[in-house]
Design a protein around this nucleic acid. Structure first.
Lengths: 164, 164
DNA sequence: TAAATATATTTTGATTATCTAATTAATTTT
DNA sequence: AAAATTAATTAGATAATCAAAATATATTTA
């Protein structure tokens, strides 16, 4: 088999594996995978507007709103109207949300980190630089892409076309 | 930053990137991401029963059934009752389904493959073996895990607990 | 400055995804 | 043959998702 094909197969395996991990975490916490992803993003950025969240997660605002509604009802996130710009809504994890993220999401990442740290240093570097190459190759296509809005419009046209 | 943290961040980037790719393909073909994933799995295995599909994709039978219903309505997949074992239902891509998969899903994978093949041979080997290591590390946890059913029950209890 | 335009979020209405539990049909075990 | 198991679907419910419309606030323009 070609090296490139091997790489693609392995990538799919890796993605499948993390997907399963997400599902397990989700079951363990009583939070659905999309909700979990919102919380992970919030943990990473501390504070985001609803719109920034949508962009970061490549979902529409409407979708984010509905996910936030449910997370807010569970008191895992809080919304706060912007003070300078009252159109904006700042979203952040509540204490309860932080707590939940602290307990749950580790299990398998820990195992990953531990095995990773068992490797020789040169091996670690090799793996990291390989990942960098892959990330770059996967993103290469986007580097000269049109801004997001335009792509959206373009795709909608394609979809219209596909229907016929 | 620790190498292991770098690796995790890069992995997330990679997953995010392929996720976006899936969404773009989905928009371009008028098929939703889950439907697309079913079709990709079918392309890989040629013929699967509904139950095998569910296991492979880590979804319940009921979910697969509903996705298949919609794909069947679009005539992208076909169901056929098993002849020896009439409980089974064999699922496969129709010609139309194969055609759709032929056209759509390439765009970005092609770009990936092309950049991949631009690398030196030793680099390719390095990337592949790095991916192998990662895939292994991510799966390590599952090697001595209890069978799925037991995990499910365990998690449900945790979930009950989480509600309180 | 008043009107028009743009931006940020939510609401509405619709389809799809997803699950658990119950049902139906066929096979295997006892 | 009756009981238990297996494969898929159906039923009923919640969640995710989107496009389009509505709402509220800011910015630009005339």
């Amino acid at each position: 088999m070609e090296n490139s094909q091997k790489a693609l197969v392995l990538l799919r395996q890796i993605i499948r594996s993390t997907d399963m991990q997400d599902k397990e975490i989700s079951r363990g916490t009583g939070v659905t995978p999309p909700q979990l992803m919102v919380m992970q993003t919030l943990r990473e950025y501390t504070q985001l507007t609803s719109g920034e969240l949508a962009k970061e997660m490549v979902l529409t605002q409407a979708t984010i709103t509905s996910i936030l509604d449910r997370l807010e009802k569970k008191e895992l996130i809080a919304r706060e109207r912007g003070k300078e710009d009252k159109r904006k809504v700042w979203v952040s994890l509540t204490d309860k949300g932080v707590e939940l993220m602290k307990g749950a999401p580790t299990t398998q990442q820990d195992i990953f980190v531990r095995s990773f740290e068992d490797m020789q240093n040169w091996e670690q570097s090799m793996v990291v630089s390989s990942l960098e190459r892959i990330a770059f190759m996967l993103n290469a296509e986007h580097l000269d892409a049109a801004p997001l809005l335009d792509i959206g419009e373009l795709d909608r046209n394609q979809q219209e076309y596909a229907k016929k």
